[in-house]
Write a protein that binds this DNA or RNA. Structure first.
Lengths: 194, 194
DNA sequence: ACTTTTTCTTAATCTAGATTATTTGTCTGC
DNA sequence: GCAGACAAATAATCTAGATTAAGAAAAAGT
């Protein structure tokens, strides 16, 4: 059953005893999302962190010209939330949408805070996954500054082969910061040097 | 004295008693850096987090064509480290350099881990500042995807007015991802629309 | 099965920003 | 106070990637 996956995820960084596992699982709210349904929309206040157990979600903004820009993909075993809104409890700018039929486990901000207090190991767990997420985001900033479109595309494919095979390529274009037309050209053999 | 600033920084998120403060301060190593001196270089393993008490540092990479790309500025009251290298204890790709004569307080990774264990409040403290840093980095990714050069420049100036006034503008160019020449053109009134 | 919608490709044109080069202004150390 | 290095401005040219448009292919709904 799906609760195994979240316990396995957590056990990568902390060890829980049976009672703690039960106590943690009792806080989770299971939710299914049909394709194109939203977990969160721009203007909403984010009240829960989500752990993906099936399917795939994406977090994106829409700019002033109506273009989407994908900040994050969340395949199974990933956490996703609008961190800005979750922390500040102010309305955010992110849409979080199911790219296909998906299942998530939700943990409310309040319960998360209680967890930090009741089982301090969870503070460690979330510190560690936040650190890892920060490292990945910093690397993405560096890549956006120092790699060209082709290099960013190749890096994306090599780092996220599973995601790459499961989603429309226009979403990859949106993630790496090019138009779908240009990505198509790249794949056809554009940017031949290199 | 400079230790006040780090205690004030910490007290924004957790409360320490006198003994805890003393215990924490005893772990810190004070270090001064002359202009253009490195706290860390590409290829080094990052062993310490640094808290800036005076001056200003910057973290940057050098790409395959020899161009610098600034990931972070660290004026007084900011923490700086190569998070990737600090976490993995593998050689990193960042240079961390003093932009002017600067003073930092260093906390070793080992001591930081001990602190998590001995005074769990520190785990909370670093979780919170890591979360804040993640939010800022995610916003920077979004901005790089959805804003043009002029908008990124204006946003930088409004968010970091203190840094903006204290550093050569070629470093701002490097941070926002344009050439110094183009930034100069922008300031002179290029990109007139908008 | 077939109709609608979504995704991908190709190609021509256009532009934001890069590159290269030169000049001028500003520090900094001595 | 001056020499040499460093930073900024200006301008001409170039290019990676955007835009626009249209058709082909694939997916999905009924």
């Amino acid at each position: 059953m799906k609760n195994n996956s979240i316990l396995r995820n957590i056990s990568k960084h902390i060890n829980l005893d049976k009672a703690e596992e039960e106590s943690f699982l009792s806080l989770l709210i299971s939710k299914s999302l049909k394709k194109k349904k939203f977990l969160l929309q721009s203007g909403d206040v984010c009240t829960h962190s989500a752990f993906v157990t099936a399917g795939c979600l994406r977090a994106y903004t829409i700019d002033e010209n109506g273009f989407e820009h994908i900040l994050q993909f969340a395949p199974p075993d990933w956490w996703i939330a609008d961190m800005y809104s979750l922390i500040t409890q102010k309305p955010g700018n992110l849409f979080i949408e199911a790219m296909e039929e998906s299942d998530v486990l939700l943990l409310s901000k309040d319960d998360q805070e209680k967890l930090y207090h009741d089982i301090p190991k969870f503070e460690r767990f979330f510190r560690i996954i936040t650190e890892n997420s920060l490292v990945a985001n910093r690397q993405r900033v560096i890549d956006s500054l120092s790699l060209n479109a082709k290099q960013r595309y190749e890096k994306f494919c090599s780092i996220y082969p599973a995601v790459f095979n499961a989603i429309p390529q226009k979403h990859i274009a949106s993630y790496i910061g090019v138009t779908p037309e240009f990505l198509s050209k790249l794949k056809a053999g554009g940017g031949e040097q290199n």
